[in-house]
């Protein structure tokens, strides 16, 4: 088996469309899917690099496997369903923690899938009134005014939260606008853009890792230090 040069992991609640996104990109089609069991992965040749893309299971039952899948990941795609704000909330509550095992310079993409469903007539009327600032992304999922849709700003807010959680400086990472996508696996909208933007970003990371030599085992003590120095040295 060829050894992949870098790893990208798709995370997100069940039914948000992770498997569908991958199938759309890799096989150019939108087949019926069944809820993923465990996980699956694809190898994608991008320029001269082999990138493995892992599709994980969103079902609670398999939640425990997430950390292992994320270990050593160069990028994580956090996927939600734009029609279900709760799926964005879940990303923060359940999935963000799984990425602790990813590389320290791991990239994060926030993907709102199923935008094709927004074209329904009901979409417009709900757009304005329902959404108070910070509601969907803020984790206050108990709020009774949960809107039916998630706005792009919510994804951006979540992205900034990730940076805070990771103690990363905004200046050191790609801008939120660059890393938040809205896609449709059904129509293919933005799907190529999403994956290929990420591949292009992952390649320099691979090169950097190669230059440093692969860390065989991760030492817990040294693992935390980069976070501190990152935010510390720029002050």
């Amino acid at each position: 088996m060829r050894k992949p040069d870098g790893k990208i992991v798709l995370l997100g609640d069940m039914n948000v469309g992770k498997t569908s996104l991958l199938q759309r990109y890799m096989e150019r089609r939108f087949p019926d899917t069944v809820s993923t069991v465990g996980g699956a992965f694809y190898l994608k040749q991008w320029r001269s690099y082999n990138i493995s893309i892992w599709d994980t299971a969103g079902r609670e039952q398999f939640h425990g496997l997430g950390s292992m899948y994320c270990r050593g990941a160069a990028a994580v795609i956090l996927t939600y369903d734009v029609n279900h704000p709760q799926s964005l909330v879940e990303l923060e509550d359940r999935f963000l923690g799984l990425t602790d095992t990813a590389n320290t310079d791991c990239l994060f993409a926030i993907v709102g899938n199923k935008v094709d469903l927004l074209e329904d007539g009901t979409a417009d009327s709900q757009e304005k009134e329902g959404l108070g600032p910070g509601v969907a992304g803020g984790g206050s999922s108990g709020s009774p005014k949960v809107p039916k849709q998630v706005q792009p700003e919510d994804a951006v807010a979540f992205y900034k939260k990730i940076l805070k959680y990771k103690m990363l400086d905004e200046k050191d990472v790609p801008a939120a606008e660059q890393m938040c996508f809205e896609t449709s696996a059904k129509t293919g909208y933005n799907v190529d853009l999403l994956f290929e933007t990420l591949f292009d970003m992952v390649v320099p990371v691979i090169l950097r890792q190669r230059a440093q030599g692969p860390p065989q085992t991760v030492d817990i003590t040294s693992y935390k230090t980069p976070r501190r120095t990152r935010s510390g040295c720029c002050a």
Binding site: G39, R59, L65
Partner: peptide
């Protein structure tokens, strides 16, 4: 043996290099 009847593969580095069998 993993949850949900999965056969999980893991390397000594704690990484899965093959997709699980069901």
């Amino acid at each position: 043996a993993g949850p949900g009847g999965l056969g999980m593969f893991a390397t000594v580095a704690g990484i899965s290099q093959r997709a699980p069998v069901h």
